[in-house]
Design a binder for these strands. Structure first.
Lengths: 197, 197
DNA sequence: CCGATGTGTAACTGTTCACTTACATTATGA
DNA sequence: TCATAATGTAAGTGAACAGTTACACATCGG
């Protein structure tokens, strides 16, 4: 058995490049030729690492989630109370949301939901994000959560909507950076405050 | 000068069909052949009514906005006070949001924002929706708006985000119909109540 | 009834693109 | 050192698709 495979390493090496390409060009306009060019290899080499273009796209979706989850986890690790974590997270998002253009991968995916595998990948991603947020909200509200407090799940969805609105407004140049920060900061605060009401 | 043109009528006749096709298939996967098939004509006939496929898509975007604006206007016309209008609107959206699948046209457009014309069409659409909502919020809060009240523009964006989150959760089957109604209803109420705080 | 123009049919074209095949080269374990 | 499998190069294939062209027919004003 000669020459052990470097496939795993190569996959990891190429993943950020794929993600960037899909973010910049969306799914359909990203040609496999372009992907190969950016990775500085031939097309068939990519086809040895992934079965087809769709698999490359799904790998990019998962990569984006993993990256976000890692960042969020790091922020939370630095915080003492869950409540502090929630507002630190919000502040971070208000400042950096959409910075890497990764939300464009989500937009691209959302127009390919007819494909069951892409759909499943997005489901996984949104589901995880939503659960992550809901958990954070749940644990950050003290024991004193009254009956009037809204469900964490709903608040989590509203927060996801807030982030998406921020991304759309950025994508279409409808809000300035400062306005987007106010949007996420103020509205997020509003939602959070009511989660503990 | 024989035989006056029926182009205008034809365009209006085909528009809902185009919109439906783009909503179901997204932009790239909607072929001009498929559009022609659904309209029960040949391709070149569509090309006499619109210069190219992109123009057909943009026409569909505008059509979707016009349709929504008309519905919203009708609801508002039935209401006495702006405040009643706001909550009726919310209730209506909670119940019917995304019903026609038109949000999928927006998703499709959001992955084609590299094209300046498509981008402009989306900008127009989101801008109008946001202004519509902001206006409604502005006029619905009484004279008694305190300093602590959030900016209508931000609340309007948050509402758009809420609608988008609802659409995503519907698209990916992550929330049931009842849950989506609660999401828009409760969270929308929350945002609105603070607009008048 | 004639000629101009609108409407319809049918076939075609040139390109783009996902994916493949054939073959050369290189590194490794036995 | 040699068989073996990984890695790389280059060219190609077949299908899909946006947009076009050529031509037949219908309808109307003059």
């Amino acid at each position: 058995m000669p020459r052990r495979s470097l496939s795993h390493e190569k996959r990891r090496e190429f993943l950020p490049i794929l993600a960037k390409a899909f973010a910049e060009l969306s799914y359909r306009r990203t040609t496999t030729a372009e992907l190969a060019r950016r990775c500085d290899v031939r097309e068939n080499i990519l086809y040895r690492l992934w079965p087809d273009k769709k698999a490359m796209f799904i790998a990019a979706i998962d990569y984006v989630f993993d990256l976000s989850a890692k960042t969020w986890g790091a922020i939370l690790a630095e915080c003492k109370t869950p409540a502090e974590g929630a507002s630190r997270l919000l502040e971070y998002e208000a400042r950096h949301h959409g910075e890497f253009g990764h939300h464009r991968i989500v937009f691209a995916g959302l127009s390919e939901t007819d494909d069951p595998e892409i759909r499943a990948a997005l489901r996984r991603m949104f589901g995880r994000f939503q659960r992550f947020l809901a958990n954070q909200i749940e644990t950050s509200r003290g024991r004193k959560s009254s009956k009037s407090a809204a469900e964490p799940a709903m608040i989590a969805w509203a927060m996801l909507g807030l982030g998406t609105a921020a991304n759309i407004s950025r994508e279409l140049d409808l809000l300035t950076g400062a306005q987007r920060r106010r949007l996420i900061g103020q509205m997020g605060e509003l939602l959070l405050s009511h989660s503990a009401a």
